[in-house]
Design a protein around this nucleic acid. Sequence first.
DNA 1: ACCATTCAAAACAGTATGTTAACCTTAACT
DNA 2: AGTTAAGGTTAACATACTGTTTTGAATGGT
Lengths: 226, 226
Amino acid sequence: MDVKDIKILLVDDEDDVLDFMKYNLDKEGFQVHTAQNGLDAIQVAKKVFPQLIILDLMMPKLDGIETCRELRAIPEFKNTLVAFLTAREEDYSQIAGFDAGADDYITKPIKPCVFISRIKALLRRLETNQTGGKLRVGDIEIDRDRYLILKDGKEIILPRKEFELLSLLASKPGRVFKREEILSKVWGNDTIVGDRTIDVHIRKLREKIGDEYFKTIKGIGYKFDA
Amino acid sequence: MDVKDIKILLVDDEDDVLDFMKYNLDKEGFQVHTAQNGLDAIQVAKKVFPQLIILDLMMPKLDGIETCRELRAIPEFKNTLVAFLTAREEDYSQIAGFDAGADDYITKPIKPCVFISRIKALLRRLETNQTGGKLRVGDIEIDRDRYLILKDGKEIILPRKEFELLSLLASKPGRVFKREEILSKVWGNDTIVGDRTIDVHIRKLREKIGDEYFKTIKGIGYKFDA
DNA sequence: ACCATTCAAAACAGTATGTTAACCTTAACT
DNA sequence: AGTTAAGGTTAACATACTGTTTTGAATGGT
């Protein structure tokens, strides 16, 4: 994805912080939107659908954690990246919302170059996470909206896990996905399933889609290739 | 990177603080090492090559800031994460060493869950920095995402250990990696393998990639050069 | 309530990969 | 040049990892 296609929503009640961030992100070519409190932030977010939202923790009307919760409750923002902005001095025990939805936190003050690289590092996660839409790899088309596969014009209907596994692998053709990465993205972080489960699903995919597309990298994981 | 491959070095002169941190990090599955002062810390660090070092500010022999400076002066630890541990009451203006190398600081007392999430947030920086991406050295390209080597446009597929060994050596072309460093980074600290194991893997790499790239430094280790 | 489908676990087999041991070669130092 | 210590080579061996099948438990629809 190109930098100029990425929308970032900055939310902070202090003008100078907002200016600092906006200036640096503008310079990199991002589309930058701003809001001064949580309520406004949600309004703006619903309009522009940013890929990343940077939320100050301490804000009037709706603080960062609450804003994050509300956003996460909206399906459209399930995969939106959210980063918290905190002052170094703030009491970290307050950051209970960490595990509950934030993707990163950034402490201020922060140097411009560090700030930018943190943002870029965060955005890198997007690339593998995209959901929805269609995806073509070779002669295979994955329709995420309709939950079906098209191969040689024929529809193939896959069970959910198989579909999601294929979807993940095909989202970056050629790239190897480690077993743990597959587990965390298809099964979720908390679920504990046996090692063989992935193999079984891969086997079913090979059966239904074709053996040649799925390559095993021993000791690492699998990759999809056309 | 898997949790169990992450090494954390805890440095504090107070036993109870050390115990608290070790207990919680152990529980998460990290490999935890400890030291009671700065001098010991540097010794341990040189042996185990941790990804993260947590340094108490106030310590006998060598305080946190000084220890951090010394570590940063050693090339091997340029990319190691360093977090400071401070009492809430301490005057933050004293933390001059902040810009000079620390990646974060943590105030004590701190709740276990907050402590853990801080650590995890810190470690997340590692992933985007060192895994993934491509690496070019001369006419050889190492594609970490696809787990393959490109040489003269040809794909070379390497087994895991060979790939990781090459990956390590090529990450700093020309630099010599000591045998113990190779062992700790490719094999891990806990695994005990014989002396000849490295040689065998180097041999296989020379076979597959080319003899000329791998230079032996007797009594020290190996380096990769184009 | 029943059946079909999907998912996960367990058991086992096959094989690539990793390790070792023994022996050979090379390089450094006297 | 001889000696010694370190690395190189090879093949046998061990093991870790994946592939496959079977079985049983959930799940969801009729």
